[in-house]
Design a protein around this nucleic acid. Structure first.
Lengths: 197, 197, 197, 197
DNA sequence: TATGAATGAGCATTCATTCAT
DNA sequence: TATGAATGAATGCTCATTCAT
């Protein structure tokens, strides 16, 4: 239909350029504190051009969130957690999650920021978190059934891992081998002796 | 010193009124999205009056953070963690921290939001987090020395508890008895059998 | 309540100044073609100040129409048309109407212009026209009953007088003694011999 | 001369399409409130294409007024008013004029709107009105000379008929048999007894 | 002939801030 | 202490117009 001419390719590149610049500026300064003029200057385009590609500043934000989001990757990470020992699975999961957070740091920061004030973004974020922690919790329960893990509050355990890793990023705590350490703490606990009925 | 005249009392009350209204509005909509006119309307004062009490919008933010902050309470929480069993101490600490977060929800949300974009706020937040987790980590290490806890990455353990509780609040996860659960998970771990040399 | 200080007086004067300038500019160039900056320049005020007095450009238009309108005067003109001969009454009415149109030329032109594209203004205009022509038509019928006028389409006659005078103004036709001529034509007709059963 | 190739035919059709769409949009919303993008969307063409046919938005307006105008038809209506009784001629003229207004309602509304603010359009409109009322006035005077009509202000009478019919359209007054009524009023007058020296 | 990306000035509006009263 | 009129720069957005393709 639309011919993939050089023109079209150029147009698509522009769009991506706007998305990239918007993600960078929004995550650095916040959505409200970024003006469309800032965006234009960052891309070398005229101020009006953004509106050729996005209907409004809010639509641009929506497009950034939709097209630069980490949610698909997160979902992929959690699809079909294998039936192997929790120590292996959780460590690998935490490390991959940590890698994803590093890779998508800008959008993570953006979502964290805007979710505080934008009800819609917040609602979607909460839904995704529920999905993700739910998937991990189900895996943990399957390991309980398999006798590998003791009965416990699997949702809290799942959240502890996710939330801690996210906060490491948001607060700028140097990551290091924290995913591994964290999983070790959660799996093994820190008490010297455990009373296990 | 300053005579507590009616005028003075009124002036102080005004100041507090501005701080309260600012905290509420800033935490709900964000600092950028709150106008000085909004603030004036919320307090019933004229738009110019805020400037008799605070030099600028940014100074008002600074005052809100300084005078409504949760940091002193956090510091009090962590002062002199008693030499008693970790199960008791950590549970009580987590519950008090959780109570503090609930009580100061507005300022927690405000700090979380602004720290994403304001370098100064962020730096101070990080410093406070380091202080707090440092204090808990030292306590944990003292329990390791006492033989109650096994050797472990105490900073990661401390952060896991703090960060998870904070994220529960920021994401709106219903708290319930999560502090207790969380401490139980971290203390006891979730594995069925632990190999402890 | 609000003290009528010099401050307040000044503020009211400003408001009037904006209304006057807006009426002039809107009627000259049209509402759409007048920018708020034009208005600011015409009054010597800063661009933002208009919004201290009027919520928006549309509210300003509404205020101009409400406070500079000719409708009250028109209504006064038509209240209690006396029980005297039509030749006198209609001539005086036409002359007063003509005088009113000259006096309020700007708002007449403005209403004529905006009613073409603004449904709300148009609807109100039509209602007022109906009121006015209705009042005149009722007077004409009372003269028919009194035997002074022959039975005729009184609404059409009333409209012919009003509409023609308005169009004289809108098209810039020099008025002269047109009201008198017009009434004479409508009253006496132009035919040499009339068959009157 | 210009070969009527398929290309050419298509081009001409495009031109007409733009004129039609422009007339409709301009008369509905006004010239200023219609954007070239609106026009492009209404015709299904690309935004730039209009400029192949018309040099600018103003030239497009000029072309609409020139090529969709009612002036030629009006002139035709008035050419050679026959030497027959005024009752017949004026009634027929009024009915045809009324029909023309209905048929060209869009352009009538457009001209009425733009003439309020555009000096050039206004000047031309006034000239045409003078031509038209002049022609009718001359006819009326010829009937006065023929003894059919009494001496009267023929220009005012002519304008009364034209202006009233136009205003019926602009104000949305339902037309019905108003042309006939109007002519009857103007011809016969509304007074019961007329003193005719 | 036709497209649609690109421009840059202009628009209505908001806002932090100042200051005469 | 308190008011609210006034400022002027900035913001999100629109628009007539141009031009490479």
């Amino acid at each position: 239909m639309t011919p993939a001419t050089g023109r079209r390719i150029h147009a698509d590149a522009r769009r991506e350029q706007f998305l990239d610049a918007a993600l960078e500026l929004f995550s650095e300064r916040g959505f409200d504190a970024t003006s469309m003029k800032d965006l234009a200057e960052a891309t070398g385009a005229a101020p009006g051009l953004v509106y050729h590609y996005f209907g409004s500043k809010n639509e641009l934000l929506a497009a950034v969130l939709a097209e630069r989001s980490f949610f698909p990757k997160l979902r992929a990470l959690l699809a079909d957690l294998p039936d192997r020992p929790a120590a292996e699975v959780l460590t690998e999961l935490a490390e991959r999650f940590e890698a994803m957070l590093s890779e998508r740091e800008a959008v993570v920061r953006l979502v964290a920021h805007e979710a505080q004030t934008d009800g819609q973004i917040r609602a979607e974020l909460e839904r995704r978190i529920d999905d993700a922690t739910g998937a991990v919790a189900r895996y943990l329960e399957s390991r309980v059934a398999a006798g590998e893990l003791r009965p416990h509050d699997s949702v809290t355990a799942a959240r502890a891992i996710f939330f801690t890793l996210v906060m490491f990023h948001l607060t700028g705590t140097p990551a290091g081998d924290s995913p591994r350490c964290l999983v070790e703490v959660v799996l093994g606990g820190i008490a010297a002796k455990v009373d296990r009925g």
